[in-house]
């Protein structure tokens, strides 16, 4: 089975993010860049499916040249080849989804697996948009994927419990946190990755409408919460919650 896995480069989740004083962006000087954690889970799931059934795992990123780094890491985890759709422009989710759908049109995968959200813009949009542009079924927030013959059943993390839906391929799946635990790239994996194909395509050569309709005007830090007061005992805590905060 051929599986396409779109991935994004984001700041390491442990990074403390600081907004530039003019609100034009975030300070990137001490930022370590990594594969978005949910995308890592998507890669892992694709690799596990491939290991059970044979096939090919193709990574795709829509971004700048520097994103090669994360694609190489994905190749080192075990993906077979990668495509970087190069652009320096700030694209919105719909433009990115259209690019991925366009590549899917050429690559013809049976499955596209993405992360449910990127931990930088926290939008949670691209997977669902790709599914609609292609007219494919979607299973977002997947915590379990079962594949039989040409049918897939997916357990989804939703409000109040777990939902199971099913459909035929081709289809789009987005990963939740507990779908799997991603592997680390092994040393031989890293060596092999250097020789794997990483193709670059210019985003504006694809004939896709890239003009962003969602524009970021400015960024700001949120108001800071004033905490830090320490209480001596459980008894005093309850008393204060009752008499001072009046919440119990």
């Amino acid at each position: 089975m051929k599986i396409l896995v779109p991935i994004k480069r984001v700041p390491d989740p442990a990074t403390t993010i600081r907004v530039l004083s003019d609100g034009s962006g975030i300070a990137t000087d001490n930022v370590k860049w990594v594969i978005n954690p949910f995308c890592e889970i998507a890669i892992e799931e694709a690799l596990r499916i491939k290991e059970k059934q044979t096939g090919e795992v193709v990574l795709i990123s829509v971004g700048q040249s520097t994103w090669q780094e994360q694609l190489r890491t994905g190749l080192a985890m075990g993906a077979d080849r990668a495509i970087l759709v190069k652009t320096d422009a700030a694209l919105d989710s719909l433009a990115i989804a259209r690019i991925i759908a366009k590549i899917a049109g050429d690559e013809k995968p049976e499955l596209i697996i993405l992360g449910k959200q990127a931990i930088d813009d926290d939008a949670n949009q691209v997977g669902q948009m790709v599914a609609e542009v292609l007219g494919w079924p979607q299973a977002t927030f997947a915590s379990k994927v079962d594949i039989t013959a040409d049918k897939i059943s997916v357990v989804r993390e939703v409000d109040g419990g777990l939902e199971t839906i099913a459909f035929k391929m081709p289809a789009v799946i987005t990963s939740d946190l507990r779908l799997n635990e991603p592997r680390y790239a092994s040393l031989p994996g890293i060596m092999k990755a250097r020789k794997k194909e990483l193709k670059e395509i210019a985003a504006d050569s694809l004939g896709v409408d890239l003009a962003p309709k969602l524009k970021i005007k400015t960024l700001a830090a949120p108001p800071k919460r004033q905490g830090g007061r320490k209480i001596a005992s459980a008894q005093e805590m309850v008393s204060l919650l009752h008499t001072e905060a009046k919440v119990i």
Binding site: P11, P13, I17, I119, L214, T218, L219, P222
Partner: peptide, 14 residues
Amino acid sequence: PTYAGNVMATVEID
């Protein structure tokens, strides 16, 4: 909110 609520983005939709 973006970046786990550490950055508030003002956005415009066309």
